[in-house]
Write a protein that binds this DNA or RNA. Structure first.
Lengths: 259, 259
DNA sequence: GCGGGGTGCG
DNA sequence: CGCACCCCGC
């Protein structure tokens, strides 16, 4: 089973390119999409159906929005945290596919200070309690998505320059580490300890062409799921082009043994 | 010499398609463009230069704007009517190319009543006096552009339905006829008396696919220029496609004998 | 820099 | 319907 996480930065703006990627490059079994930026009414269900995917969508107008698209039927679908304090922003959707439990996350962007930063830090503690209270780390749990945090110096193109900037501040990293510490494995870093594995490059300054990126999209697993994880990579096929305009993120794809 | 008039509905949105038309279909000698919708600063001079065109531009931010692009050097360039009552809207540019005097016009859209209609009617009387006072009908004069008026029943797809609607109201037609009566020849109607020659189709309802159009773009000539006019047609190459999005107008192209 | 939203224009 | 404009989010 091949699982991809991909912040598409608008599913409607990206559908043509995404379809080409699935057809010409990589027919992954499960797609976890972030920032679909549309409501369920405007989600291109039919196009995914034609490609063989069953979709669960938690959408919102203009901003945020997450979806899971799977070649295996989805069940046990949970939209949001079931917490009115958080669920006005559509950032989490969970579902089971086969014996895997997928939790798809779009963490807040945050800010250098103030309410947006507070909200981002609280989001990770909410995500932690949500997972611990609703699921079990003994499941084949896969938590994927755009976490908007780089864990370590290796995960950013210039750790000195970027220290203290959004996505690489000490508070953010601590909040994210505290979440990961419930027992999740950072599969990319585990399997590729010597590769940066950037997943995001700013649209500005042609950052992709200078490889000035950050690793902020993750595939995190419970130990039971990690046991089956055979490989993981960042797929640059969509990102390294000028037209049609790609997302600023690249998909991360992990392969899990069928057993 | 092949001369085209083309309301591009934004030169920046249309440049790729226009370039393909010039390269793959029809390398006209002179292009009269309307609704470029940009200032001179934002006009793609370099791309036209690479295609071999010398450009004279009378632009404005967001709306209106006209340009003449020519493979023969342009001279005697006149921008606007030199009348502050009209020249806040950039709708007229004139230039000589070879021994032809080209006057490129984007007439106002108008309305069913009120100030916009008044302005449109006044525009044609201003255009008339502008031409009579500045130029001579004895020149090889070519007045082209989007006149936003259909002359006759044959020039609209449903004269009964459209009677009294914008572009086909009696007042508009009379004002336009009064202008043409200075001694201009409607070359398309003269050379193709039995063809509708629509030049514009509404974006709505897929009007192009039902041929629900109007003939509102003209190549009008003085008798001396008409003597050299060998053929004229509406080129549907750009219009009859879905992607990239075409202008709602099609170019009209006339061929003038070199002598 | 590239998305979304809205509004104005034709 | 598809441009332009603006403001906003990331």
């Amino acid at each position: 089973m091949e699982i991809a996480t991909f912040n598409v930065n608008s599913i409607r703006a990206r559908m043509d390119l995404l379809e080409r990627w699935l057809k010409e490059k990589r027919a992954v079994d499960l797609l976890a999409l972030q920032e679909i930026k549309c409501t369920e009414e405007n989600f291109p269900f039919e196009r995914f159906e034609r490609l063989g995917y069953d979709c669960a969508v938690f959408g919102q107008k203009g901003y945020n929005g997450v979806a899971i698209c799977s070649k295996y039927p989805l069940y046990d679908i949970k939209k949001g945290f079931a917490d009115s304090l958080f669920d006005n922003q559509k950032r989490v959707i969970a579902a089971k596919a086969g014996d895997y439990r997928i939790i798809n996350v779009y963490a807040p962007h945050g800010d250098l200070e103030g309410e947006k930063l507070i909200y981002k830090l609280r989001f990770f503690s909410k995500l932690k309690s949500y997972i611990v209270e609703n699921f079990s780390l003994k499941e084949k749990l896969i938590v994927v998505g755009d976490m908007n945090v780089a864990r370590d110096d290796m995960d950013v193109w210039d750790p000195v320059l970027l220290k203290g900037s959004i996505g690489f501040m000490d508070e953010e990293r601590e909040a994210f580490e505290d979440f990961v510490s419930i027992g999740l494995v950072d599969t990319y870093r585990e399997l590729r300890p010597n590769e940066p594995g950037f997943t995001w490059w700013d649209y500005k300054n042609g950052a992709i062409w200078r490889n000035q990126g950050m690793r902020i999209d993750y595939i995190l697993t419970s130990p039971n799921a990690f046991e089956r994880c055979e490989d993981i990579d960042v797929d640059l096929w969509t990102r390294k082009r000028r037209s049609p305009t790609p997302s600023d993120h690249a998909p991360v794809v992990a392969h899990f043994r069928d057993e």
